[in-house]
Nucleic acid binder design. Sequence first.
DNA 1: GGATGTGAAGTCGTTCACAGCT
DNA 2: AGCTGTGAACGACTTCACATCC
Lengths: 193, 193
Amino acid sequence: MLEEKGEVVVSSAQLAYACGVNAAQVRKDLAYFGEFGIRGVGYYIKDLYDDIKNILGLNREWRMAIIGIGNLGASLLLYKDFLKKNYKIVAAFDIDPSGVVGRVSEKMGKPVEILHPDRLKDVAKERKIDIAIITTPASEAQKVADKIVEANIKGILNFTPVQIKVPKGFVVKNVYFTNVLDNVAYLLHLKRR
Amino acid sequence: MLEEKGEVVVSSAQLAYACGVNAAQVRKDLAYFGEFGIRGVGYYIKDLYDDIKNILGLNREWRMAIIGIGNLGASLLLYKDFLKKNYKIVAAFDIDPSGVVGRVSEKMGKPVEILHPDRLKDVAKERKIDIAIITTPASEAQKVADKIVEANIKGILNFTPVQIKVPKGFVVKNVYFTNVLDNVAYLLHLKRR
DNA sequence: GGATGTGAAGTCGTTCACAGCT
DNA sequence: AGCTGTGAACGACTTCACATCC
């Protein structure tokens, strides 16, 4: 955003304000990965942007599969434009492809391929899938996770409200926004009594 | 889930395993709010469940408004069944109600009322709105937040990838799942180089 | 002069380990 | 005998404050 505004350099204090954190925090975090700033000046925005992309691994393409094409899964499939360009959804799985393919295809305006989860291992290899997104019902989450592990997909994004167990070497992160909502409710609740 | 299985008591060790944390953590966190367990036994599931609901403020009804009826906002409106029963969506706002109301009503199968954000203050009072959910484009987020503050809605759930500034006394929490996705990508990236 | 990079100090949260109850 | 509740030890992260360098 700063770049679009025509800005050239930015200070840790500005970045800190924008992120709602302390300026020393910004500097320490960046310094952990190298020296990106110039003393007395700040950080060159263009360079910093590129450096951060390199650090985070966002130059590489990440190929993803969505497993479980219910409301949430279908939404992700449909509205994938909020994903950065380096993330690609390259496969969709559902235990009942025939029941779901029509509904989703209609909404997308073009036919959508939906595969049975049993094919995960083959397809993962064929299409070089890096990350699996679990959007099944909670009751299926661990079973699906086991299949993901079997398919040797190392990254998992779990939208299900259960803790998934996977062997070491696999990365699991959870996304469950109703927890955040509960947190807002709790903090409001605190103040009223 | 344990209750449905017919279990009566649960130990901190079991809870810890299910949550992927340390047992001492579970005990300390609970002990912070009172004494809920029985030494030598564990925690009575029914009682613990009720106690936690009380602590978190989940017995009360929480009334919410969604502001910004794009893809995400409309999805939340449509598929609100994943919300716990004590959360109610009682209003929807968009800067272009006429452009959006048809599309959403069609999908929902019944007419949906969508209001202009200028009416936020009135409606917030009328309908006793506790929490506002921002699902506008990022560029609008701060403006919308200002309106929310003006309407004196104390809780904000921000789905936008910008840090919102509000006066003290307001609660803001952010939900932005692509950050979590970036985190998965980063951790995978770390291992490969 | 001014903003970074960074030891040192400070704060916060986690884990240990065991006394205290049931 | 067993599991909670909790002080104390530990570890991790955050902030301070200033030497360093452009």
